[in-house]
């Protein structure tokens, strides 16, 4: 069997071929990366063209914007992330900085969940939904981000506000002020998983029956902050505070 050459020459030869291989592999991966870059650029251009063509709809129509964001997150593009501060969203849609963008998504979540929580959402739930909407890892947005964003929304006068109810931070997205009685009701309902009847308020808050009944009826009919169940086994008629209900999806 022919032995591979020993000595200095062979060693140099081996080194030489190894170098060549390294170079070749560099060249290969470089071309792959280039190819990926080209694809990415192509994709960004397509997305940018789409955003530019539909800019008006994205900005005006919440349902369309929501669908657009879902599309972005399903293909792993965060419309708010980008090379520039303010991100791609700002670049394409002419909207302001990151804080405002987060605000947009907060509004989006608040509006789409309003029919099931009456315009009052637990801040942890809000963060969970915004994170999901953006397709980010858990913990990418924190409570401070949300609170700051909501402050930037205040000049719009849309009524977004962080309120403290029995130690839980909630975001209110309805213009109405919560009066004292409503705050008490929300706090008690939260401890009870959502269901509430006048008797509970009489017992826990020592209200008169009339006060308890009136406060609940107002929340139900006037403000849409709670729901009624006419088939309650114990009381016949029970009230449910949707923002205090735990939903599993």
């Amino acid at each position: 069997m022919h032995r591979r050459g020993g000595g200095i020459a062979a060693l140099q030869r081996q080194e030489q071929s190894q170098r060549s291989f390294v170079e070749l592999s560099h060249a290969l991966s470089e071309s792959q990366v280039d190819h990926l870059h080209a694809q990415l650029t192509h994709f960004r251009t397509a997305l940018a063209r789409f955003a530019a063509t539909h800019r008006h709809s994205i900005r005006r129509d919440p349902a369309f914007r929501h669908a657009f964001q879902q599309m972005c997150s399903s293909i792993g593009v965060d419309p708010l992330a980008g090379p520039r501060k303010g991100g791609w969203w700002a670049e394409m849609l002419g909207m302001a900085d990151w804080q405002h963008e987060l605000g947009v998504q907060i509004v989006d979540v608040c509006v789409t969940t309003r029919d099931r929580n009456g315009g009052l959402i637990d801040i942890a739930e809000l963060i969970r939904l915004v994170t999901k909407l953006r397709g980010l890892a858990d913990g990418a947005i924190d409570e401070d981000d949300v609170i700051r964003s909501i402050k930037t929304l205040q000049p719009l006068g849309a009524g977004y506000h962080v309120v403290d109810i029995a130690g839980r931070k909630m975001v209110r997205s309805v213009v109405k002020e919560l009066d004292h009685d409503q705050t008490v009701i929300l706090a008690i309902a939260t401890q009870l998983g959502g269901r509430i009847v006048p008797d509970v308020l009489i017992e826990r808050a020592s209200w008169s029956h009339d006060r308890a009944a009136a406060a609940l009826e107002n929340m139900l009919t006037r403000d849409g902050l709670c729901w009624v169940d006419d088939q309650d086994e114990l009381s016949g008629r029970a009230y449910w505070v949707p923002s205090a209900i735990k939903w599993d999806e």
Partner: peptide
Amino acid sequence: APPFFSQQPNK
């Protein structure tokens, strides 16, 4: 959700 089965008074 129990209230889903009742007619709601708020529009």
